[in-house]
Design a protein around this nucleic acid. Structure first.
Lengths: 177, 177
DNA sequence: CTTTGTTGTTATCGACTGATAACAAGCACT
DNA sequence: AGTGCTTGTTATCAGTCGATAACAACAAAG
C-alpha cells in the first residue's frame, strides 16, 4: 500500500498540525522531530527537509498558532466588537489545549534570540489586534491579556480545557469568571 | 589551589542557586546538567549525585523558587496585608528574572506528570497564600494572579526586569499599572 | 598514623537526536 | 518510452548528554 502523494505545501500543513500537538506537549527543546514525523505519518528526515531545521519548524508553528488566535479574534469581532465576545472566542481556543500551550512554550523559550524576537513580535501584535478590534482602553486590554495568560498557564497545567485534572483552587478561580 | 570543601547540604544550596539561573534561561528539557555544574563550579557527575536525577533537581529548584515567592509575600504582608503591598513585593521579585521564569518553565512542562503535579500544588498554594494573607475576594485574588502571570510571561520575553528589550507595546501595557 | 566516612573528581558508557547523503518512486510532458 | 522534476525513504553519522563506576583527596576520631 503506497501512501497518497501530496504537494510539499500540503504535506507541510500536515507536519505543522502535528508540530502543534507535539510542541504543545513537550515544548521546543523537549520535542523530538522524530515524534512530529510519527504524528504526521512521514519520515523524520523529511520533516527536516521541509522546514530546514527544528528551530525553523518551531518558529513556523508559533506563527501558525498566532495566526489562528488573531483570526479567531477577528471573526468574533465581526459579530460584536467588544472584549466579552473576544473572551468567548478565547475560551473556545482553550478547547484545543495544545494551541495556546505552544504559545506559552514560545514565550518561555525566549532566551533563544530568534524565538524571543518572534514571541515579542507576535504577542505585541495580538495585543494591538485586541485593542484595534474592540477599542478597549489600555487598562481594559491589559486586564484582558492578563486573564488570557492566566488561562493559558492553567491550560498548560491541565486544569482547564478538555479532560481537566480536578483541582479545588482551579474551580475556585474559574467560578468568578 | 584546592577548592574549599563544603558539606553536601551547603554545596547542594550552591547547585540549587545555579540551577535557578540555568533552568530559568533554558527550561527543563533545554538545560544541561553540565551547565548547572559549570555555574556552580563543580563537576557534572557530582550534581547528579547530589540530587539523583535531572528531574529531581528541577523539582527541587521549583520548590525553592515557590518557597521564595511565598516568603516574599508573607514578609510583605507583615507590613501591610493588602494586594497592593503584595504586588510591590512581586515587582521586586521581577528584578531577578530567572526566579519567576523557572516557575513558568515548570508550568509549561506540566505534561511531565511529576512536574505537572508539583506545578499544580505550588500554584494552588500561592493562590491560597495570597487569599489568606490579604483576605481578598476571589475575584480580586484572581485578577492579582492574572496580572502576575502576565508579568511573568513578560519577564520571560525580557521586556520587564533588568536590561529589558525596548518594546512599544510593553511600555504601553505597563504604564497602566 | 591508620581507619573510616564524606566530599569530590576523572573516565567512560550507552542511548539519543538532529541533520546529511544517497537513493527510490511517482507524475508530467514531449 | 524516456526525461526531468518533485516527493519521499533508508542508512548513517557526529555530537550530545545524563548517568554510573571507580578512584582520589581530605577530615575526624581513636
Amino acid at each position: 500500500m503506497t501512501r497518497t502523494r501530496l504537494t510539499a505545501a500540503e504535506r507541510g500543513e500536515e507536519v505543522l498540525e502535528a508540530a502543534i500537538v507535539a510542541f504543545g506537549e513537550s515544548g521546543y527543546a523537549g520535542t523530538k522531530t522524530d515524534e512530529i514525523a510519527r504524528l504526521a505519518g512521514v519520515s523524520q528526515p523529511y520533516v527536516i527537509r521541509l522546514f530546514g531545521t527544528k528551530q525553523q519548524l518551531f518558529l513556523a508553528t508559533l506563527e501558525r498558532v498566532c495566526d489562528q488566535v488573531e483570526q479567531a479574534f477577528r471573526t468574533a469581532a465581526e459579530k460584536q466588537a467588544d472584549l466579552e465576545t473576544l473572551g468567548d472566542a478565547f475560551n473556545q481556543l482553550l478547547e484545543r489545549r495544545e494551541l495556546l500551550v505552544v504559545l506559552l512554550h514560545g514565550f518561555a523559550a525566549s532566551a533563544e534570540p530568534a524565538i524571543g524576537k518572534a514571541s515579542r513580535d507576535r504577542f505585541g501584535r495580538i495585543y494591538r489586534t485586541v485593542r484595534d478590534l474592540t477599542g478597549a482602553t489600555p487598562e481594559e486590554a491589559r486586564e484582558f491579556m492578563a486573564t488570557g495568560m492566566l488561562l493559558t498557564v492553567m491550560a498548560a497545567m491541565q486544569v482547564v480545557g478538555p479532560n481537566p485534572v480536578a483541582c479545588t483552587w482551579a474551580t475556585d478561580l474559574l467560578e468568578t469568571l
